[in-house]
Design a protein around this nucleic acid. Sequence first.
DNA 1: ATGTAC
Length: 472
Amino acid sequence: MELVEESPYRFRIDRHGPMRVPGVVFAARALLPDLGEDRSLDQVANVATLPGIVGAAYAMPDVHWGYGFPIGGVAATDVAAGGVVSPGGVGFDISCGVRLLAADLTRADLPRLREALLDGLDAAVPRGMGRGEVWQLTDRAELDAVLRGGSRYAVERGHGVAADLDRCEDQGAVGDADPAQVSDRAVQRGQGQVGSLGSGNHFLEVQAVDEVYDEPTATAFGLRTGQVCVMVHSGSRGLGHQVCTDHVRAMERVMPRYGIEVPDRQLACAPVDSPAGRAYLGAMAAAANYARANRQLLAEAARRVFARVAGARLDLVYDVSHNLAKLETHPVDGSPRRLCVHRKGATRAFPPGHPDLPADLRPVGQPVLIPGSMGTSSYVLTGVAGAPAFASTCHGAGRVRSRRQATRTVRGQDLRRDLAARGVAVRGTSWRGLAEEMPEAYKDVTAVVDAAEGAGLCRRVARLVPLGVVKG
DNA sequence: ATGTAC
């Protein structure tokens, strides 16, 4: 794999073999994957072969190996030119993403409140492998309402306020969700997990704004130095996983019908404008809405705890996905084209002035929420005009050591003690799960954000530091 | 990420 350094923070993989477009990797040298053990740049080259792909196959500074597509990847296909949609370009955790809420508390309030807040959150947040739910659904009809309405349906049912929806990507619900394309098995897995955190790198964190880089933008986002925040990182649980599994299989079956050949069967895909493509996009939107409702309910659980323990309010800053495919219009070779933009471990970052942003955010751009690894900083960024990669940026730190490697290095009990000594209180459910998330298993999120900003993908607005973390 | 294998 040959990388050509085009400019600082931008490397090119020239077209070779069946690649239809080049690959572009946004990164500092130190962040590039270890070519010996991480095949993610080969995956970038593989993605570049997909029918209808335009521009380039992009990799973000947090890129690492994933299912078919790399995690930290962006690929857009031209719908009218036979462009495909691929479940592997979204990932198993459909609409996994981040929600940030700002409290009317300052850091100085925390010493007296922290343990009680974390104990309250520990009790109020269902989490861990296979476990759910804040919200007991009565039947499939109610789950279908979640799949169609996402956060909007949760708010209609009293779980939140209407103003929340202005601070959600897609006003809280992806359009054109088709619950009929969600299998009975996916429904079965999802029925008992609505309003649950999950496991792995998912978390709910109490944080403080440690540094503001852009005061006017931070103010527009509702953030100020010293403010206490809550960050939720969660996704579509077993339901999204099953939707991905089902539709990868369905696409493997129909690919020959469209004459599509891919270098890796994990790149299974179908034209956006085909029955299989539409079926996946309808199911994907439904799973995305499940994830949105999930984060809405988790935020409500946190609000109840903050109200009871501290008499404090939590206002929504923003909710945004980093695993989704979307139909968006972007210029290609100077003319606007309808594209299917796959973002897998990549965050949409609309620039100032974008018509899809609510009026109060339009002058400053879309909030982009970047969770760090456990015990490290998280960042709030914003989109910038004229950015490459179809208004996308990084999504987090990016794993560099496997879960197994991590558990061989540290015991969960020791990690929890070390974090506590550094001022980060932990409420976990699994010692092994905790060890797997050791900060050293990830890239340095600050270096990732610096590279993303240096590459012209986004701009820093604020840095948040953890005070306490609730882990699955 | 995930009923960490159907």
